[in-house]
Design a protein around this nucleic acid. Structure first.
Lengths: 185, 185
DNA sequence: CTTTCAGTCTTGTCAGTGACAAGATATACG
DNA sequence: CGTATATCTTGTCACTGACAAGACTGAAAG
């Protein structure tokens, strides 16, 4: 089976390779040309699929939002427990660091991309359903819960908790921590 | 007063110019050569002061940690109220977005730089003093409070709260939100 | 079967970038 | 005065993202 001119699913190959490189060196150190080399295509091939570098990250961020929303939806199917949902959020960040990294770095991608905006809205809406009630107060409780989970995940990823955690498992530690709070009325 | 060969305080001029450029275009879009142009020096002058690009961001992150620690210390002098401290944290992120941006992006700088590590430790220690008590449980409460503030600030900066907040002032909104939680035993 | 055509990928090129080396200049210090 | 050191410059290198123009492929239309 000889290598054909048309690659097959180059777009997917490129995003996958990108995730690998991001995991190794971080998003900013990824070059389109490295990506092309990894996929065995010419240096301009990625540009055709994503427009520019930001287009690549937009695709990755969108994909990440969908994955996160799926994970949250799965957890919500077992009942709207904010604490469990928070743990799932933190676990997503730990299991998919490359996605998480890109998703919350707007300077990397096209923030107004319709698909990305839609995917992000789905995530937000899912989080909202974990807190009962309507109105501004319930919104605030949801935002509080989201902030705790997101803040913990972010501080963890940026290495700010290394000294504080001292080797203990981050996910279970977050579970304990969340148990001390009470986001429900 | 003619332009001398030695610039005077080029290091300071460069970090200040960098903060301006970061505010405009984000940290990744800043180039050492732009910086040099802004300061009216040759393209290799910045490298002499900071070693490499990461060195520049290390200096900025350290400076930012000191500013944040100062702000927290000032607030702590008025009594150890976690909620007020959180508001101050969020305000810092809003008032010094360029610093905040760099501080929590470890891939930009030399994470193991001694001065930076020391400055970060001071910030962490100050946060810790806001929660009374000793031991693991108190640590968790401190971490919870930090996570809420940091998560809120981060989500805000990444544009994830635009739809949710709908134009309301973020800082006061965080105050309300923090009032719904209870991080103290 | 052949023509056309849009989508996919390549080749070639450009200005801009970070890093490094070697040299020039100014200040501090004996 | 002279000499060492910190500061800054000039020159260069490989690499990058973006763009333009062209080549290849598969499929639809005649």
């Amino acid at each position: 089976m000889t290598r054909s001119y048309h690659h097959g699913d180059l777009r997917r190959v490129l995003t996958d390779a990108a995730l690998g490189l991001i995991a190794e060196r971080g998003p900013t150190a990824v070059s389109l040309r490295d990506l092309a080399r990894a996929a065995g295509v010419s240096h301009a091939a990625p540009a055709h699929h994503f427009g520019d570098k930001a287009g690549l990250f937009t695709a990755i961020a969108t994909q990440g939002q969908r994955l996160l929303a799926d994970a949250l939806a799965e957890e919500l199917a077992r009942g709207p427990d904010p604490r469990r949902l928070g743990v799932r959020y933190v676990r997503f960040a730990a299991e998919h660091p490359s996605y998480f990294e890109v998703m919350f770095r707007p300077d990397l991608y096209h923030r107004e991309d319709p698909e990305l905006v839609a995917a992000r809205a789905r995530t937000t809406d899912l989080l909202r359903t974990a807190i009962p009630g309507e109105g501004r107060d319930a919104d605030r409780r949801m935002l509080a819960a989201w902030s705790v989970a997101h803040g913990f995940a972010t501080l963890l990823r940026s290495g700010n908790l290394d000294r504080l955690l001292g080797g203990r498992d981050a996910e279970t530690e977050f579970g304990e921590l969340a148990g001390l709070l009470d986001v429900l009325p």
